[in-house]
Design a binder for these strands. Structure first.
Lengths: 120, 120
DNA sequence: ACAATAACCGATAAAAGATTCGGTATCCAT
DNA sequence: ATGGATACCGAATCTTTTATCGGTTATTGT
């Protein structure tokens, strides 16, 4: 019998950050947009590990949080562009810092993960 | 009928970063340790929103990733300290940057989330 | 007319993550 | 010897997030 449901604490800057860009794909999507892949299909092709559906859902969330804006034009091919808002742009330094960290420690992390797999 | 299982791509620095410190509590725990709350019970008291069990599990993961080290002393009260490794310390700048971002945008984020709740 | 591309959405399944509960063991103070 | 504090762990279960599938609508090129 469960009684407690822990509610999210938004008095912590860390938690707020993760709330906004902490999903599995959000940072990657922001990175893609920043690199010029502004349309859903483009983003999808730039990161085919995610499904198009996921990208759409994440874009909708980022839109609702005010991280991206949406611009639609009625031309062919049906053109919808997502662009970073100022809020979205303010995340970029964090993004590049995490990316840099991950790249720098890539070898070590992979080694550790392999160790864990082997024990398994 | 499901066929595909997307495997994780660890060729992206962002994904590597999130793999290591992307959980709901990991960054908070690193922050707590950095602030001198080095023992599980201390960490728990410093962030009672999480349960002790969660903290234990997250610590075990951080330990296996080489982000923290564990030191036990057989004194009373049974003393176990978790300390940041060099890898763990290298995460701190990212941590403080996210915290700073979240604090700065706290008002805006809360406003947005409230809007979403109201529509709900 | 028909295939191809783009954007998007609903329902549902699966996987991941977090939480609760109930344990063990040790040590100290009363 | 009893109760409280510490550090753990296993298992069940809940919650959240992500993934898959199967659609709709619209437009272009052939």
């Amino acid at each position: 019998m469960y009684t407690k449901k822990i509610e999210e604490d938004l008095d912590c800057g860390l938690r707020i950050g993760f709330k906004i860009f902490g999903g599995k794909w959000k940072m990657c999507i922001l990175d893609a947009i920043n690199n010029g892949f502004t349309r859903p299909a483009e983003i999808y092709r730039s990161m085919p590990d995610a499904t198009l559906r996921v990208i759409e859902m994440q874009l909708a969330e980022l839109l609702s949080f005010g991280v991206v804006d949406k611009y639609s034009e009625d031309v062919y091919p049906k053109k919808t562009e997502y662009r970073l808002t100022n809020l979205g742009k303010s995340i970029l330094p964090i993004l590049s810092q995490i990316d840099k960290w991950g790249t720098e420690h890539s070898a070590f992390v992979k080694e550790k993960l392999q160790e864990l797999d082997e024990v398994q």
